[in-house]
Simulated assay, not measured.
Amino acid sequence: MLSSKDLIDIRRHFHQIPELALQENETAKYLRDIIGSFKQDYLELKTIESLPTATLVHVNGSNPTRTIGYRCDIDALPVTEHTGLDYQSKNLGKMHACGHDIHMTVALGILNYFSEHQPKDNLVFFFQPAEESENGGKIAYELGVFQGKWCPDEFYGLHDNPQLPAGSIGCRMGTLFAGTTEVNVTLKGKGGHAAYPQLANDMVVSASEFISQVQTVISRSIDPIQSGVITFGKLTAGTIRNVIAGEARIEGTIRGLNQSMIKKIDARLKAIGKGIAISFDCDVDVELNQGGYLPVENNPELTDNFINFMKNNKQIEFIETKPAMTGEDFGYLLHKFPGTMFWLGVEDDSQLHSDTFNPKETSIEKGVKAIIQFIEFRMSNN
């Protein structure tokens, strides 16, 4: 079994070679090299021609009654690292600022254990590219990857959490992460001279009114007991101060804790867009793109089983967590397969996606042991 030092060395190597979505070539090679160094008696590795940085590993069970899936993501973010670590990113402008280096290392630790201790049930490990963008889980599913022996009966995956103690496990019944939808709104009117507004159709005014009206969606169209977020982070219009803008573009994001809420918010934005078009005699195009970023909704039965195991294991610090508005494309796979996503505490003052994010490495071995114990427990229950 990989030692604590082995795990830390692997994690630090991953940390130095971050790559963006669908470009994880060096990462995938290093992953496969490590997997190739494991005992191969029970392992079968699979790659996908149309998704070349993805890697799947099947572990043959001794007396299988189910196939348990375990997924981890492998891509990084377009962030320039400022941790000052000896092993910080060698790839300028790219960083494992979301901790996927931790995710991969934990998954390899679990896989290594079961390569040496044959599991009762079959296991399928999915090392997934493109979680941060491009929805790699959805791509893999639509390519028909999870068929036959590669089809999990249930799926599990983790995300690191700097707000939880190192090595602790966090989870909850129901929704763990929100679903997310990208919003792009284009408004087209008529440009003109600032001194003659009556001869133009000002899209700065129209865009402002659209944004103002959308602010009522969460406060007046969504159940106050539930939660949703609409944020517009970018507004582009005009070229110079004395020219009326004939076009404007708004870019933002929707977050919702269930799919029905997201669809309701989507419908309200489209309705507001139609109203603005009529009111301001302009063209308004509201483009909504959710892709694979559906809400991460944990399966009730499997999650209850997972939480009870973690709560009753004296070697594990379990924390029941609240839902988060962050997005995760594992939500797409959990809409296709029953399963559970959970947190691994990595205890850091910096937050996910920050350029100083530095998770505690003591969390890795604790996470490996906790998940191995859970999988063995799960396999003992028919």
Results as ranks from 00 to 15, higher is better:
2 L>K: 04
4 S>Q: 08
5 K>C: 06
9 D>K: 11
14 F>C: 10
18 P>H: 11
21 A>D: 05
24 E>P: 11
28 A>D: 13
34 I>L: 10
34 I>W: 03
41 D>S: 14
41 D>W: 12
42 Y>D: 14
43 L>P: 09
45 L>P: 15
51 L>Q: 08
52 P>F: 13
54 A>W: 02
56 L>F: 09
58 H>G: 10
64 P>D: 14
66 R>W: 06
68 I>E: 02
76 A>P: 06
78 P>Q: 06
83 T>H: 02
90 K>A: 12
97 A>I: 00
99 G>E: 00
99 G>N: 00
100 H>R: 01
102 I>P: 01
105 T>W: 02
105 T>G: 07
105 T>V: 09
105 T>F: 04
112 N>S: 11
113 Y>M: 04
121 D>R: 02
121 D>C: 07
124 V>D: 04
128 Q>K: 04
132 E>P: 07
138 K>Q: 15
147 Q>R: 14
148 G>H: 14
148 G>Y: 15
152 P>H: 10
158 L>P: 02
159 H>T: 04
163 Q>W: 00
165 P>D: 15
166 A>K: 01
174 G>V: 08
177 F>W: 02
179 G>M: 03
182 E>I: 11
184 N>L: 13
188 K>Y: 03
190 K>H: 09
191 G>W: 02
195 A>W: 10
195 A>T: 09
199 L>C: 12
204 V>H: 05
205 V>L: 12
208 S>Q: 10
209 E>P: 03
212 S>L: 14
212 S>A: 15
213 Q>H: 13
221 S>F: 12
224 P>C: 10
225 I>S: 14
225 I>A: 10
230 I>H: 05
235 L>M: 15
243 V>I: 14
244 I>N: 03
246 G>A: 12
249 R>G: 01
250 I>A: 02
252 G>S: 07
252 G>E: 01
253 T>V: 11
254 I>P: 03
258 N>W: 06
260 S>T: 06
260 S>D: 11
261 M>C: 05
264 K>N: 15
268 R>S: 15
269 L>H: 03
275 G>S: 15
286 V>H: 07
290 Q>F: 11
291 G>R: 03
291 G>Q: 12
295 P>K: 09
302 L>S: 08
308 N>Y: 14
312 N>D: 10
312 N>M: 11
313 N>L: 03
314 K>D: 11
319 I>H: 04
328 E>P: 13
329 D>A: 05
333 L>A: 12
335 H>R: 15
337 F>A: 07
337 F>K: 12
338 P>K: 08
342 F>L: 09
342 F>T: 00
345 G>N: 00
346 V>L: 00
347 E>S: 01
348 D>T: 00
355 D>A: 01
360 K>H: 01
361 E>Y: 12
366 K>Y: 02
367 G>E: 05
368 V>K: 00
368 V>P: 00
370 A>Q: 04
372 I>S: 08
373 Q>F: 14
376 E>A: 14
379 M>C: 11
380 S>R: 04
